[in-house]
Design a binder for these strands. Structure first.
Length: 864
RNA sequence: GGGCGCGUAGCUCAGUGGGAGAGCAUCCGCCUUACAAGCGGAGGGUCGGGGGUUCGAAACCCUCCGCGCCCACCA
């Protein structure tokens, strides 16, 4: 079903093409991967977006990269699986639903656990589909038949299985520890769910005794002090160690202990020790066997000490200071103090360290394995510079607090007996009669960490798992290297007997605005990818993002660049329209006796094909795009098509050859571009070739035998001459339509001269030079290197003054160049050390510059 | 406090030892029959400053200045 050019409109209509083509792709099952295939597997699991989220421009970048990788591999003959899905995003989703309920004045506690969860599932149903629809708009070639959700039955089974295994291996334990606690979300948080930022506070110096003054930013916690600590080597306080002081406001007597943790240089060198409300103090308490006194509840409200009871931490702080003051000279001084404070990454509430009973993963052996897999090269991180960050993280990992006091998530599979028995229950087991399940759920990253294999059916030994694990590459932003990547490494290596979940981690950056600024709603610089898709098309949106995607670095985008990408798609559209209208053919062998021009474009095509492959392998998407953009626009459209026109229009056997070459070039170019701009290439390529789809077409292989330096040099000469004449014409203010007489003269008998003369008709055509007619007299002479000149008769049109000025400028440049080259060549040591090619290059430059001077002198003579 | 990175044209970025580049923006001229979402031409940079290594430095070393990011239990 070939289409002729008349059926294609003059401008590419993305909206119409995209909707139609995506439906066809899905209906024809092109994206479906087959576990029984003999082809080698290539697997990417999508970083599962938050179920409550919408597609933002960061997803668009992430998905464009993954889709490009997957589409290329599919074309290369791999069994390519791109597995889609979503994350239940425990705390984030629960917060969203709670906020919605709050507008009706309802709390989750009013509903109760089961009814609340029903609401969350309803919300998931309502909102979860939208991001999937948005992925279709982008053109994501995911296998929809394998869509997964972290709360699916199968994935929940995987969660329970690995929990049980870790529990039985002693790598999961329950302990009373100081953890990060959000007093608003009322749950424990892991270290990475806490964001630190500097904030202004006060450092209050409190006199506990004549000799002991402590400094604190959280005065209210003194109510729970159970010791004062000093450094064991601090002579100022040595005599006080093991004595006691009276804790103000309480009348309690507390010991003075010596502990290495205390920095004698900071503050007074004395530290108040509150084991129940500070992680360091907790450690000190452990070492010195101190009691822990909890003085705040889960909402950070004081629970003890009459006058303070019922005050929240921020009310209690000044109240305690005031009370100390009331007791006279107990507060020595208060200084402003800027220090770092942790906030809940979800709601920004200041985190309160809190002693509580939680579940932890002992990460020591897991993190070691996760580090080693990268260290010994089993897993590569691209770009390699980001490895350092990865190591810094896995080599210093603390145990991971995995229990959350939430309702939305995977319930901890541990049951407690009437007498405090603890039983961890595996997926096919049931708890003993009368046991009750732990009320908490798991950190959302616990299930995300299983994603690369839970989605493939683990713990069952499924054909999918067999075929598609380990995955080939993980594509994600560097911002979740710690959150997600390190955890997938730990659990993947653990669950899959030491086989890492992916071979390569390809990290990209964040999408920023055209000035490199972070996108934010308040700043008003947020790009909505769907808006761009509506106005410029999915391909243009994808191309804009991919074109800025240098490994591991942020991507700046702007509306103007999206428009430029749209223009590029349109350029492809029109080039192909031209080819179709002029009989381009795509079958049969390439013609043997080719013109230099045809050989040149095939040579360039071979080079670009090799380049694109190289860049793809290195995850250099910006360079993939750049190479193809320049080849398509400059080489093919600006030169090849223009050079091909006279040949095609003349007809005959030469035209047939060029039709074949033109077809070959566009056929290959579309296939090279398809991973990045799938829709426009599908539409054009199927029209050009009559084939059903480009999605499963063969990826072009580089053909080094087509590389032809002679043809490239020949066309380079042609381009140089044409450009020189055009520049001259522009300087003279000659209109493109105005033809002038010209004569091509070659003084030397060289390959360059031969090329020059052989291209005479093409040169005349592109530069609008007429044959030298009767009475021709050269009024200007353009001299190029190698003794080739173009004489032009511009009498009546030439602007002598303008031409003089231009020549004077050229002369200055050439003289500078000559001086530079002579200086270099005159340096004996340089000649002795430098490689021959360098010397040759400089000699060639010198010769060219000297020829330029000769040309200028001749031209000036002509003008005079 | 520790670590990593960046500073090249108006903007965003390539280039990491041998002729300063690209895209977008700007200026000039063109409806030349695939495309005005186009064509042709042009201008524009002491490669953050200073010092060093080298025949030669945007690149390598030192230093200063400016910016960004990540990690962090000095109260």
């Amino acid at each position: 079903m070939t289409t002729n050019a008349q059926e294609l409109p003059a401008q590419y209509p993305p909206a119409e093409v995209e909707a139609r083509r995506y439906e066809q792709w899905v209906q024809n099952g092109y994206f479906r991967a087959d576990a029984d295939s003999d082809k080698p597997a290539y697997t990417i699991v999508i970083p599962p977006p938050n179920v409550t989220g919408v597609l933002h421009v960061g997803h668009a970048l992430d998905h464009t990269i993954q889709d490009a990788l997957i589409r290329r591999r599919r074309m290369q003959g791999y069994e390519a699986l791109w597995l889609p899905g979503m994350d239940h995003a425990g705390i984030a989703t629960q917060n969203v639903v709670e906020r919605r309920l709050a507008t009706d004045g309802v709390s989750r506690h009013d509903l109760g656990r089961d009814a609340f969860l029903e609401k969350v599932w309803e919300w998931k149903k309502e909102s979860g589909g939208s991001i999937l629809g948005q992925m279709r708009r982008l053109g994501d070639s995911v296998d929809w038949s394998r869509e997964r959700f972290t709360m699916d039955a199968g994935l929940s089974r995987a969660v329970q299985t690995i929990f049980k295994r870790l529990f039985d291996d002693g790598l999961i334990y329950r302990a009373n520890r100081i953890i990060n606690w959000c007093p608003r979300c009322l749950t424990a948080l892991s270290d990475i769910e806490v964001e630190h930022s500097d904030s202004d506070g006060e450092l209050v110096y409190i006199r506990y005794s004549d000799e002991i003054v402590v400094a604190t930013t959280r005065a209210e916690t003194m109510l729970g002090d159970t010791a004062v600590a000093v450094n064991p080597n601090d002579e100022r306080y040595a005599h006080l160690v093991d004595t006691e002081v009276e804790l103000p406001l309480t009348g309690r007597r507390i010991p003075i202990v010596a502990d290495e943790h205390v920095d004698p240089e900071f503050g007074t060198g004395c530290v108040k020790v509150t084991p129940a409300h500070d992680p360091n103090d907790f450690e000190i308490g452990q070492r010195h066997d101190l009691p822990s006194i909890t003085v705040m509840d889960e909402r950070a409200v004081i629970t003890t000490h009459g006058p303070f009871q019922g005050l929240d931490r921020y009310e209690a702080r000044p109240a305690v200071v005031a009370a100390l003051r009331a007791e006279g000279r107990i507060v020595r001084e208060i200084r402003p103090y800027n220090h770092s404070v942790g906030h809940c990454s979800r709601c920004k509430t200041t985190v309160e360290p809190r002693l509580s009973l939680q579940w932890f993963v002992n990460t020591t052996p897991l993190a070691k394995a996760a580090g080693d897999a990268v260290r010994d090269g089993r897993v590569k991180i691209e770009p390699v510079e980001l490895e350092k960050r990865y190591f810094a993280w896995v080599d210093n990992m603390h145990d991971w607090c995995i229990s959350r006091q939430l309702w939305w998530g995977h319930r901890i599979p541990v049951f407690y007996g009437p007498d405090g028995e603890v039983v961890c229950v595996g997926p096919d087991e049931t708890a003993p009669e009368g046991y009750t399940q732990d009320a908490d759920v798991l950190d959302t990253w616990f299930s995300s960490a299983l994603w690369p294999f839970s989605t493939l059916g683990w713990p069952e030994k499924t054909p999918d798992l067999e075929k598609f694990y380990p995955t080939s590459v993980l594509v994600t932003g560097y911002d979740i290297l710690f959150f997600w990547v390190a955890r997938m490494m730990m659990f993947g290596l653990y669950a899959m007997d030491g086989v890492a979940p992916f071979k390569t981690v390809a990290l990209h950056g964040m999408v920023r605005d055209q000035f490199g600024k972070k996108m934010s709603k308040s700043f008003g610089n947020v790009v909505d990818p769907l808006d761009w898709i509506d106005r410029y098309g999915a391909d243009a949106t994808r191309f804009t993002l991919a074109r800025g995607a240098n490994p591991g670095t942020d991507v700046a985008v702007s509306e103007e660049w999206a428009a430029a990408s749209r223009n590029f798609c349109n350029k492809l559209w029109n080039a192909t329209r031209f080819a179709l209208a002029n009989g381009a053919t795509v079958t049969g062998p390439l013609p043997r006796d080719r013109s230099a021009v045809d050989s040149w474009i095939l040579s360039r095509l071979a080079e670009v094909t090799a380049e694109v492959d190289r860049y793809f392998e290195a995850y250099e998407f910006a360079k993939v795009c750049d190479a193809l953009f320049h080849f398509a626009w400059d080489d093919v459209c600006d030169w090849y098509l223009e050079l091909a026109k006279p040949v095609l229009f003349a007809g005959g056997p030469e035209a047939e050859k060029t039709q074949r070459v033109l077809g070959e070039v566009l056929d290959t170019l579309h296939r090279l571009l398809h991973p990045v701009v799938p829709f426009v290439t599908e539409e054009l390529w199927t029209t050009l070739t009559g084939a059903e789809t480009i999605v499963t077409a063969a990826w072009p292989t580089a053909r080094p035998e087509l590389i032809n330096p002679t043809a490239e040099a020949s066309v380079a000469t042609l381009q140089e001459v044409v450009t020189e004449i055009r520049r001259f014409r522009a300087d003279q203010g000659l209109k493109p339509s105005q033809k002038v007489g010209g004569r091509l003269v070659a003084a030397e008998d060289t390959a360059r001269s031969a090329a020059f003369l052989s291209h005479e008709p093409l040169i005349r055509n592109l530069a609008r030079l007429e044959d030298a007619a009767e009475g021709f007299e050269a009024s200007a002479t353009l001299s190029l290197a190698g003794g080739i000149t173009v004489e032009i008769d511009t009498r009546g049109t030439i602007d002598v003054a303008a031409e003089r000025a231009r020549l004077a400028k050229d002369q200055a440049v050439a003289e500078k160049e000559v001086a530079q080259c002579r200086g270099k060549l005159g340096n004996a040591e340089f000649l002795g050390k430098a490689p021959d090619q360098v010397v040759d290059k400089i000699k060639a430059r010198l010769a060219a510059a000297e020829a330029e001077l000769v040309r200028i002198a001749a031209a000036l003579g002509k003008l005079a």
